[in-house]
């Protein structure tokens, strides 16, 4: 980022990256939210194991369901903190005063959330593989890909609703209530496709679900980016 470039306001993508970096810098200075979400995810993985009768259902069959439920709730935890930091002292006015497009603010926040959620997944997925004795293999690469697609969808919708919920009286309740119906197609598609791939089925079987996941991401990243400016009071 040379001084020469500061004569022109940054384009949307560059601005998003700046916003994301700011958010992540704040987040990793304290790391509290990240560590809490991580511990929550790991505890959840263990609790789910004991909630089922291991003799009746094989752990490997349980694993996809557990993974995506944990993914949803840990993701929600991460999203809760998204706009919270801007609420204090109307810090968002500083962001709004900067010469960047509103869409860039949204994309930047979503990007920061994506890094956050990916960080949690990077620990949770190996934990599920470990605790549920999943066979390591080519399925893991596909699982990572599915997780990435699912995370994009979750973060796209969750960042937008987080921006709205933070301005209400019941933010902690409202965010899950608004987001969960939207997470359903994501979780369904991710669970179905990952279950098939981890069981060694051919990719053709998972393909219809993957298409839904990709379509969801495209539709909602676009829609939420366009809708974000309407959530701002200006």
């Amino acid at each position: 980022m040379t001084e020469r470039q500061s004569a022109r306001p940054p384009g949307t993508l560059a601005a998003s990256w700046i916003v994301a970096r700011k958010d992540l810098a704040i987040e990793f200075r304290t790391r509290t939210a990240f560590l809490s979400a991580l511990v929550f995810a790991l505890l959840g993985v263990t609790i789910f194991y004991f909630a089922w009768d291991a003799t009746a259902v094989a752990a490997a069959d349980l694993a996809p369901g557990v993974l995506w439920v944990i993914f949803t709730f840990a993701g929600l935890l991460g999203l809760q903190r998204s706009f919270g930091s801007e609420l204090a002292d109307r810090a968002i006015d500083g962001l709004l005063g900067a010469p960047i497009s509103r869409e860039a603010i949204y994309l930047g926040k979503a990007l920061a959330n994506l890094v956050f959620v990916s960080g949690i997944l990077a620990v949770t997925i190996p934990a599920v593989v470990l605790f549920y004795n999943l066979p390591l293999g080519a399925g893991i690469g596909a699982l990572a890909g599915i997780a990435a697609l699912a995370a994009v969808g979750l973060v796209a919708v969750g960042t937008l609703f987080s921006a709205m919920a933070v301005n209400t009286r019941m933010a902690e309740l409202l965010l899950p209530m608004l987001s969960l119906p939207f997470f359903v197609p994501i979780v369904m598609a991710a669970a179905q496709s990952s279950a098939r791939l981890m069981a060694g089925r051919p990719i053709a079987e998972a393909w219809p679900w993957l298409r839904i996941l990709v379509a969801f991401d495209i539709v909602f990243v676009t829609a939420c980016t366009l809708a974000f400016p309407y959530t701002l009071d200006e």
Binding site: V157, L160, M164, L178, P181, F182, P185, V219, F220, A223, C224, A227, Y230, T231
Partner: peptide
């Protein structure tokens, strides 16, 4: 915003 997103969902 929610109404429009819901119709997409």
């Amino acid at each position: 915003v929610l109404g429009i997103l819901a119709s997409l969902l």
